[in-house]
């Protein structure tokens, strides 16, 4: 009896709180028909925002995955002075407000920042330009790969790697052929979380971007712009596109499990 009440309450809560938002995004996006919403994506500013977001995401994922793997290896395999401090430093961006994560880059490279004026004279633009957006996104997504890969790598143990070294493999070979295959699932998960966060980052990017339509507007910033300009269909169409991309990234983390189950069934 109690069980049925709790089932009902759980599903009611899930429906009201968690299901209505995505359903509403779609219904708002398609209010004037699918043609109208697709047309809003053809707008040059919208196109520019989509391309900029994809570009920033690609750079961020590449950099943070490469260095994240190296850091995970370092923290999993070696005990050294300052290890705990380094670990805390790598996790810090998780407990910082996105706005602060953007602000720090302005303090360094903004017009009133430490290095901003000097770089400006050399004609290098970071704040209110694409490099600033990349830096802010790198900052907020920095912990994900390390955090997902590190525990699994520690669990793996070092036996296989030591055996590979004794067999004459070089560092990169061991990393590529021994260490990474063992943490494949966690690495995929970390990369996808990085992707989802990089696609959707709003607060940090908003602070450093300068909001120049067609130039420094990512998809989330463009959504804000459209929404504040009462272009509801365009805003929610872009929101639906961005939401689907980010959700796909998050849900894809379960893909290896599905694939394994599917293969089990077919064999």
């Amino acid at each position: 009896m109690t069980r049925y009440v709790l089932w009902g309450a759980s599903w009611l809560f899930i429906l009201v709180v968690l299901v209505t938002p995505p359903v509403m995004v779609l219904s708002e996006a398609l209010r004037d028909g699918i043609g109208a919403s697709v047309a809003t994506l053809a707008d040059p500013d919208a196109q520019a925002a989509i391309w900029l977001t994809l570009k920033v995401t690609l750079i961020t994922v590449a950099v943070n995955t490469l260095f994240g793997i190296l850091a995970a290896w370092l923290l999993a395999r070696f005990r050294f002075f300052g290890r705990q401090a380094l670990l805390a430093l790598l996790e810090l961006p998780l407990s910082m407000s996105p706005v602060v994560s953007g602000l720090v880059w302005l303090l360094l490279f903004g017009a009133q920042g430490w290095f901003g004026p000097a770089l400006e004279r050399m004609n290098i633009h970071i704040a209110f330009a694409v490099p600033g957006i990349v830096l802010a996104t790198l900052f907020v997504t920095l912990p994900y790969v390390v955090r997902t890969v590190l525990p699994v790598m520690e669990l793996q143990g070092r036996d296989a790697e030591e055996a590979a070294f004794l067999a004459g493999a070089r560092f990169w070979q061991v990393l590529w052929y021994v260490a990474l295959p063992g943490v494949r699932g966690a690495l995929l998960s970390g990369v996808l979380l990085t992707t989802a966060r990089a696609l959707g980052e709003f607060g940090a990017v908003s602070v450093v971007s300068g909001h120049i339509p067609g130039e420094t507007e990512t998809m989330p910033l463009h959504i804000e712009n459209l929404y504040n300009g009462y272009q509801s269909v365009a805003a929610f169409t872009m929101a639906a596109l961005l939401g689907v991309l980010a959700m796909a990234a998050v849900l894809l983390r379960a893909a290896p499990a599905w694939f394994a189950r599917w293969r089990e069934k077919t064999i």
Binding site: V25, G200, E201, G203, I223, F236, L242, A249, V250
Partner: peptide
């Protein structure tokens, strides 16, 4: 359950 984590904040915001 993971939807709020996955949904970009700007999307959650306007929604």
């Amino acid at each position: 359950i993971d939807l709020p984590l996955a949904l970009p904040t700007a999307v959650s915001g306007i929604t």
